[in-house]
């Protein structure tokens, strides 16, 4: 079978302690090649300390048509934000 391999999404941790961030994808046949290709493609300028690769077909995404039902219900729950609360005058370190 001749093709360009599977598409793998690439996540890079730029420094220890930080979250892995999505940077793009690469084509590869198998996990080891995906890791190596991601390393060669996305860390040529000292961008990373750790790489995750995930086959694109294994990523499940929400869909834009569900925008409303998925995300809008959070709009009126401002009590989840710290700035919602008024602290007594003069209180510190809270």
């Amino acid at each position: 079978m001749d093709n360009q391999g599977d598409v793998w999404e690439v996540f890079i941790q730029s420094k220890p302690g930080l979250a892995h961030k999505h940077v793009g994808n690469i084509h590869a046949m198998g996990k080891e090649m995906a890791l190596q290709n991601a390393r060669d493609m996305y860390t040529r300028r000292q961008e990373g300390t750790c790489i995750w690769v995930v086959k694109m077909e294994d990523v499940t995404s929400s869909v834009p048509e569900e925008d409303g039902s998925f995300f809008e219900p959070a709009n009126d729950k401002i009590y989840r934000q710290a700035t919602h609360y008024v602290m007594p005058e003069g209180s510190k370190n809270i």
Binding site: Q4, G5, I26, H27, A28, M33, Q36, N37, D40, M41, R44
Partner: peptide
């Protein structure tokens, strides 16, 4: 054989 491999070999 693939764009990704070009990059690997030149690295």
């Amino acid at each position: 054989p693939m764009l990704e491999e070009d990059i690997a070999l030149t690295n």
